[in-house]
């Protein structure tokens, strides 16, 4: 008994965060790789201003379409702008858009999903038919229509993507809530007189956190992809902002044979980041499940 207590306490004292990191690297190597990619991406995005060796919109005709070299690690584009710096700033834009839009989407999904899932009945019926209607439109159609009305721009893209993914994602949270709702501990919470908001926030929400985390991480990836798609179509953040999608569709496509690095650099970055975020999200879900937390291993 004492030994067990000491072992538990000993593990506690290392701090939950370090313990978690150790478990991540030991049990989920792929997730850990995703985590490293994700942190690298965050780091690049946050410190793009410091890291970038060149200014991003400085045109330099002498250096146009240079192949990757020590001076220009990712080469230069058709206007002689340093691709490496532009990729870094692109990461910054992707971080902002990815986190804001995925954050907004998750909040919308959670609020809508928890309320309709827990209350059920008429509220659920009405809200979910609205979600049905919304989901019956292809994403791109909604995006194109709304962007063509409100005009392109970063904040417009964030709000549109947030609502687009948020409303669809509410289905996932609602499903999780319905399976949690019938648990005895929810009845137990009712039996101690807990009010509905208290039950939703304190008893249901912590138990649907695993799907919420996965929803958020996959949405970050999806939003970054969608934003690139929009930029590719010319509906995203307008040039000269260095978005990865914009780089792919602009110079990347026009000079694909002459200077393949113009398409490869943003393409590979995009693929790596989205993949990394997805495997990291999967690992997070597995590790944060309270039923697996500290299960003696």
């Amino acid at each position: 008994m004492t030994a067990i207590t000491e072992a538990t306490v000993g593990r506690r004292e290392r701090g939950p965060f370090i313990g978690f990191a150790i478990r991540l690297f030991r049990d989920k190597p792929l997730g850990a790789a995703g985590c490293v990619i994700f942190l690298l991406f965050l780091f690049c995005g946050l410190f793009a201003d410091v890291l970038a060796p060149q200014t991003i919109n400085q045109i330099s005709p002498i250096n146009r379409l240079k192949a990757p070299s020590l001076q220009f690690p990712f080469g230069t584009d058709n206007l002689g702008r340093d691709m490496f710096s532009r990729i870094l700033y692109g990461a910054q834009l992707s971080v902002i858009i990815g986190f804001c839009a995925a954050g907004l989407a998750t909040v919308i999904s959670v609020v809508l999903g928890i309320v309709t899932g827990y209350l059920g009945g008429k509220v659920d019926m009405v809200a979910q038919r609205f979600v049905d209607a919304w989901m019956s439109f292809p994403d791109l159609v909604i995006l194109i229509v709304v962007v063509s009305v409100v005009g392109p721009g970063m904040w417009q893209v964030i709000v549109i993507l947030g609502f687009l993914y948020g409303i669809a994602g509410s289905r996932i949270i609602r499903g999780a809530v319905i399976s949690v709702r019938e648990n005895m501990y929810v009845h137990a919470a009712q039996s101690i007189g807990a009010t509905t908001p208290r039950i939703l926030l304190r008893h249901i929400l912590p138990n649907v956190m695993p799907p919420v985390i996965v929803l958020f991480t996959t949405r970050v990836g999806a939003v970054i992809l969608a934003e690139s798609g929009l930029s590719f179509l010319g509906l995203g953040v307008p040039p000269p902002a260095p978005t990865w999608g914009g780089m792919l569709s602009g110079a990347g496509r026009s000079f694909m044979y002459l200077a393949p690095w113009l398409a490869l650099a943003p393409g590979i970055c995009l693929t790596l980041v989205v993949y990394g975020i997805n495997v990291f999200g999967d690992a997070l879900r597995d590790l944060l499940d309270p039923r697996m937390r500290g299960s003696g291993k």
Binding site: Y185, H187, S191, H203, P206, M209, P290
Partner: peptide, 16 residues
Amino acid sequence: IAMIFQEPMSSLNPAL
């Protein structure tokens, strides 16, 4: 009035 349930395994919230 308070209540004690049948299943102690499932009537406590696993996440709290």
